[in-house]
Design a binder for these strands. Structure first.
Length: 194
DNA sequence: CTTGGGATGGTCT
DNA sequence: GACCATCCCAAGG
């Protein structure tokens, strides 16, 4: 059995997500997203994430109060929070927070494609392998992640989950989060170069 | 390489 | 009724 195939068999456990949202955002870098559609498999290494908090974070969807849309950010850690934005795109988050917090999630902003590149190209309507999944909405397009995945348990689902990835730790670059205008002092955008 | 405008609709005020 | 945790393309340097 090939090594990469063994690695993607097991999803990260619930306890991985039951830690501070910022720490989880950093630890998700280098991990592997696995998407199975029928008998086809897509995978990629996470290269950019952002942490979003609760009442401590004015840029977070959960800042004001619990709503139907942000409900998932208050639910069980390790589940997916998918939201619709700009009238045409979805963004994929993983619910994560320490047990004392009420809400929190990590936005997955970019992956480096690994397996299933042809499927990603098809899903993206592209012929080139460039820019396939290097943005939050490009990523959901490439992996066919939509609102139907809202609340999905990433620790037990077989069609979409996150597994171990790179073995070697990479240097993390911290920055302000993209596309927001408040809480700019929170350097909660994290990237690695592969 | 950078910049500006259009697409498009759910959510919140 | 405005705002968006965005992307793409065309035009300019």
């Amino acid at each position: 059995m090939e090594k990469w195939f063994q690695l993607i068999l097991n999803s990260l456990p619930r306890r991985f997500y039951a830690r501070d949202t910022v720490v989880v955002a950093q630890d998700l870098l280098g991990k592997r997203i696995v998407r199975k559609i029928g008998r086809q498999i897509i995978s990629g290494i996470i290269t950019e994430t952002e942490a979003y908090g609760h009442t401590n974070d004015s840029a977070s969807h959960a800042f004001r109060r619990k709503t139907k849309r942000n409900q998932a950010m208050f639910d069980e850690v390790g589940r997916a929070y998918v939201y619709f934005t700009y009238g045409m795109y979805f963004c994929f988050n993983v619910v994560a927070r320490n047990p004392e917090a009420d809400a929190g999630a990590v936005l997955i902003r970019a992956i480096q494609p690994e397996k299933g590149v042809e499927i990603m190209k098809k899903n993206r309507g592209k012929t080139s392998e460039k820019n396939l999944a290097d943005g939050p909405a490009k990523l959901t397009q490439a992996l066919d992640i939509t609102k139907k995945h809202y609340g999905l348990d990433l620790t037990s689902n077989k069609e979409l989950y996150i597994a171990e990835g790179l073995e070697k730790q990479k240097k993390i670059i911290s920055d302000s989060r993209i596309g927001i205008q408040t809480a700019l002092d929170n350097l909660w955008n994290f990237k690695i170069n592969i």
